[in-house]
Design a protein around this nucleic acid. Structure first.
Lengths: 229, 229
DNA sequence: ACTCAAAATTGTTCCGAACACTTCTGTAGG
DNA sequence: CCTACAGAAGTGTTCGGAACAATTTTGAGT
């Protein structure tokens, strides 16, 4: 039984789209909370809960006694905003997708470089195992899950918590819209690259590890951009 | 006139510390909203607003009809969580700071590489200008502001919106705790590196640009870690 | 034209109630 | 004895209204 969507979530979604969709200029006043509640036919408390989330994302600025104002997400928004600009009402934004994949590729390559110097024995073993299992996955969903498990282990092995958190932000997009990301595992020729990466990390060869990950991610990138284009 | 802290902000802060401070195991039930409201002596609506922010950060999972449960921030938390783990109640976490600076260095180097191939004429000019102005800053605060302006322009020139958003997440730490980050501009010998970086980007030399930024960031990193150690 | 107090506007917090969903419990039926 | 189901209990969700606090606007008085 699909539980009914929360009222505050609906309000959040509407405001999010209005702001990210450019229906408000940065600095422009938002309608008052009372007005929003009346227009949307909901209680003011629900509006406030939605506003608190927008405030957490730094999409709006609220000042007691004054109006709420929208902020320039490109200037103040954090990484968690990316999902909302990738999938706006207008559909998938391909230039944002390209940027996302490029950033992913560069960061994973750097993580591989770090991992080659820091990975524990267990991490090296698990990476090797996952590299073998990814190509053997039954369907796209399983392959995606294994691919992400591989990347998660890789980033974990880099020993840098910041990259871990960045990957977490990306993971949400990956799984919330799994169908759109099937392309990352669709390309043939990926299997040897997983193995090359795992081997280089186990061998403690930073440059080779980074190269392998860059190649792997670039191939996934190509496949995905073609699939969605 | 410092406006009094909001009730929901106070609740948010307390819960945030409890969760990030490890006072709850991942998956453990949180007290009920009614209980929290009673214990903290506040209204339930204020608790809910705080919870919505925690939910946005994916620090808690709320299920209608069931209890609220804390999530493992290391597994689900996005980049925006970093600030709360860097500055917990126990003070500044130096290992997290080291990770942050390392990730910053690697990403800025990659941004410089991209920028060398994509920067507009105006961006190249502004980078060169900022490179000249940074060393001439009157005090630490001004130097920090110029340093960040330089990095902002650099990331902007990389043409990748994901890196822009990541930098935004980092900027908050930078400015909300400006005193702790004075070290980034304290090191002598930074001035020529800014110029080298700007020149390489203007010349369209990716490898040189990446190298210059890596050196620059590494020097800042050293200065900051020494200053806070 | 300027100053300052009052009014209007807007966000903030509170209270109490009703509703919706999940889990627990105890009873009836097998 | 065990299962299945209805009811009770527990918890999050939404609502309506009221009072409070901070800012902005207004207007009277100088």
């Amino acid at each position: 039984m699909a539980t009914r969507a929360l009222v505050s979530d609906r309000v959040f979604g509407e405001l999010c789209e209005s702001i990210l969709g450019g229906r408000y200029e940065p600095g422009e006043k938002l309608p008052t909370q009372r007005t929003l509640a009346a227009e949307l036919g909901v209680n003011m408390a629900s509006v406030r809960e939605a506003v608190k989330r927008l405030e957490q994302l730094e999409l709006v600025e609220v000042r007691h006694g004054d109006a709420m104002r929208v902020r320039d997400w490109r200037e103040h928004g954090g990484l968690d905003v990316i999902g909302h600009v990738l999938f706006s009402a207008a559909g998938l934004d391909r230039s944002t997708l390209a940027a996302l994949l490029e950033a992913r590729r560069l960061m994973l390559a750097e993580c591989a470089r770090l991992a080659a110097g820091r990975r524990s024995a267990g991490q090296a073993r698990r990476l090797a195992e996952l590299a073998e299992r990814v190509p053997k996955a039954d369907d796209a969903a399983a392959a995606q899950a294994l691919d992400f498990a591989f990347m998660t282990e890789l980033v974990e092995a880099s020993g840098n918590v910041v990259f871990v958190l960045i990957l977490n932000s990306i993971r949400r997009l990956y799984f919330d819209h799994a169908d759109l990301f099937e392309g990352v595992v669709a390309e043939p020729g990926l299997a040897p690259l997983y193995r090359r990466a795992a081997a280089a990390i186990e061998a403690g060869a930073p440059a080779r590890a980074a190269g392998a990950l860059a190649d792997l991610a670039a191939l996934q990138e190509r496949g995905l951009l073609e699939a969605t284009g």
